[in-house]
Design a protein around this nucleic acid. Structure first.
Lengths: 339, 339
DNA sequence: ATTGTCATAGTAAACGTTTTCTATAAATAC
DNA sequence: GTATTTATAGAAAACGTTTACTATGACAAT
């Protein structure tokens, strides 16, 4: 029992006019006699006619849909970003086709192909995995559909980027530890991601500068969905902290920070008395955790909003390869206080 | 400088065959000589041809996209739900077109129209606003595109529903308060939503049963994005708690619960010593808040997963009006302990 | 030699639109 | 009264696909 949607032909027949006239009434781009216009509108009302956007877009060769790729959405960082994107798109009445790459390169490539096949006007990628991809191949697939990366490796000049100043963010965090006299620092990063690479680089430089190699340490942490990331981080941290209690721990995101909190709780370590803790992102989680988490605010919503604006700009102007860098700022809460 | 995507015609010309043959090679649904198949595939590779899904769907009259309507995604309830939906759709390689209704009926209707115009195969609505809509009109717009509501008013028989057993959830929460000897209960709900209506109804019955009308009170709370909801709830709660400290507070979602926590902190009220607090949803927020929040777990991911499965089932079978009810359970944490 | 079968692949209509081009009738100009 | 303009709206091609129908040549069967 397939349902047949009412088409422009049905309306035309009902109103006793040609499809061309109906189209003109719908789009209001050509003069139509007021009398027939009424007839057509009546028919549209009666039949509940809604023009088929797919047909329109094929004919016009233009699309008003933007594709978005995120690893998953059950992570407040990405949901905030997506919310920002949507705000930008909504202003210009674009729609949002969202795909999930699950931190998997294979599936990521499939997402891109899928979006291109669906004729999106532009693509926003907020997926850490992509940065390691074969950009050459990548660029062949997308043709000249503009791509905006969020927090990726901006070395590829034909794509656009919206970036947080992550280096500044972690620099300030480490400086804050240092100023508190906390020199024995544990750095917790996630797996493959340019964002983490940047932070690790800054951390290493920091260690070099202060000769901290004896005490600083770097570990890789969780993957998967939010709950799994937290769980895995906790599982990794417990034995580490059992062996040695660091002065301070920096986590590259707040899910891992929650894992650290869980680990400390299990080991009866007090934050910040025994260990200070700083996270990154400033999601709601950090504001309501126990203790409230000192963190680096990267304005996630703005990240998304700018990415949305940039992709639309790229579409309109045909220009590519623009970079936008957004500021970060350290938000001091209860997980760090003077020793 | 408009970019021309490579079409099936380009491939046909390059391979020296007709478009029909290319189509047959791409879809593999008709026999093609192995020799020509090779030639065609070579051309496809070389030109990076990707079939235009929009054209396919128009021709075939079928679509593999599901539309989703949520008020916004910067709210962990909805992002968890969407994640669940995506998992279900992904299994059958459907795509997800997501629209944001901003808790506004006007914009909500626009979302539905937009999705229908974009020829989605089905729609999932997780928007509290919709329940008050003119369902008659509604049903005219969507034709026979199946709609699945999440936690809506299931009285309309032509749509399908996935529901949490919210009544059971709040019943248990209130019973728990009662068992603790907390009779002076404040009920905090949000604005228009059937979910809140159900809970309010149960709350009123509970008050009737125990003759609590002297002490129980019901208030409306925040709207807007997550931060605003929290903020508004706090602003509303502070004067109320200043005037009278209740034994217990039930919040219809966890954002409002965070607002209550903020209010209590400002007034130096201890949770649970001065006031016990129970929320609803069981997002990450409740697990890491200070104190950890006792809450009613509605399995958000499953809610989404079932909605996704149900909409696909409706599409396949042509059947409508199915109902799925999911269990809820009380998760006791630190915001409620015996007095 | 005629007919029939088979494998292969081309032709053209169709999906639901938009828009150029053309046709009609009415209105204006001379 | 004829010629020209103007307002209106229809016919048909086009967008990128799929597929029913048709055409071709090779081969086997009689």
């Amino acid at each position: 029992m397939r349902f047949i949607k009412t088409t422009i032909h049905d309306v035309a027949k009902k109103a006793g006019v040609s499809v061309a006239t109906v189209s003109r009434v719908v789009n209001g781009n050509y003069p139509v006699n007021v009398k027939t216009k009424e007839r057509v509108n009546a028919a549209i009302q009666e039949l509940n006619f809604v023009p088929n956007v797919q047909a329109q877009e094929i004919k016009l060769g233009a699309s008003k849909t933007i594709g978005v790729i995120v690893p998953s959405i059950d992570n407040m960082f990405f949901s905030e970003v997506v919310n920002g994107i949507e705000r930008a798109l909504n202003e210009k009445s674009y729609s949002l086709l969202i795909t999930f790459s699950k931190n998997d390169q294979e599936s990521e490539l499939a997402c891109v192909r899928n979006l291109v096949a669906r004729n999106v006007a532009g693509i926003i990628i907020a997926d850490p995995v992509t940065e390691n991809m074969d950009k050459q191949n990548f660029s062949k697939i997308v043709g000249n559909v503009p791509i905006v990366f969020i927090n990726g490796d901006p070395s590829h000049s034909e794509f656009s980027f919206v970036l947080s100043d992550e280096a500044k963010g972690i620099s300030e965090a480490l400086a804050y530890f240092w100023q508190q006299g906390r020199h024995d620092i544990l750095f917790v990063r996630g797996a493959d991601s340019y964002s983490y690479d940047i932070k690790e680089e800054v951390f290493k430089q920091f260690c070099d500068r202060h000769n901290l190699h004896a005490t600083a340490r770097m570990i890789y942490s969780g993957e998967g969905n939010s709950a799994q990331i937290i769980e895995q981080t906790k599982d990794i941290l417990v034995p580490i902290l059992q062996e040695h209690v660091y002065d301070a721990i920096f986590c590259c995101n707040e899910l891992m920070a929650m894992g650290v909190i869980d680990a400390c709780q299990q080991l009866q370590l007090s934050i910040p008395d025994d260990v200070a803790l700083i996270g990154f992102d400033n999601t709601l989680l950090s504001k309501y955790s126990n203790p409230k988490l000192t963190t680096v605010d990267q304005h996630m919503h703005l990240l998304g909003y700018n990415a949305g604006g940039l992709v639309l700009e790229n579409i309109e102007t045909g220009q590519r390869g623009k970079r936008i860098v957004l500021n970060t700022s350290l938000i001091v809460r209860d997980s760090t206080t003077n020793m």
